[in-house]
């Protein structure tokens, strides 16, 4: 049996409670890894930019983008320090990155 992560869905539930509505928001996810939270964020947001310095993780995330989210999500291999954007974000999610 593989390891089951967060079987009760606590993270998503608390993220919903704390973040509030992401509808219509431009969201930045920092430390997205292989996209553990990205799909849920992209479904709720207007547009998601997800960054991580690990190229392998980003490649895995890009390969797994659900069809319905194409055009709503953008992955970039970069550190937060190197990242820049011409447009400001409404919400940033710093997930298990320290």
């Amino acid at each position: 049996m593989p390891v089951i992560l967060d079987p009760e869905g606590n993270e998503g539930r608390y993220l919903d409670k704390i973040a509030g509505s992401l509808a219509g928001k431009r969201v930045l996810e920092i430390g997205c890894g292989e996209g553990r939270l990205s799909w849920d964020l992209a479904r709720k947001a207007d547009y998601l930019v997800a960054i991580d310095p690990d190229a392998d993780d980003i490649a895995a995330a890009q390969a797994a983008i659900p069809l319905e989210l194409a055009g709503k999500i953008e992955f970039q291999t970069t550190s937060l320090e190197q990242f820049s954007s011409p447009y400001p974000f409404d919400t940033a999610v710093l997930s298990w990155s320290f």
Binding site: E11, D90, T91
Partner: peptide, 13 residues
Amino acid sequence: LLRPGGRLVDIHP
């Protein structure tokens, strides 16, 4: 990177 008044959600152990 945030607009003025924008939100940061931080999650860590």
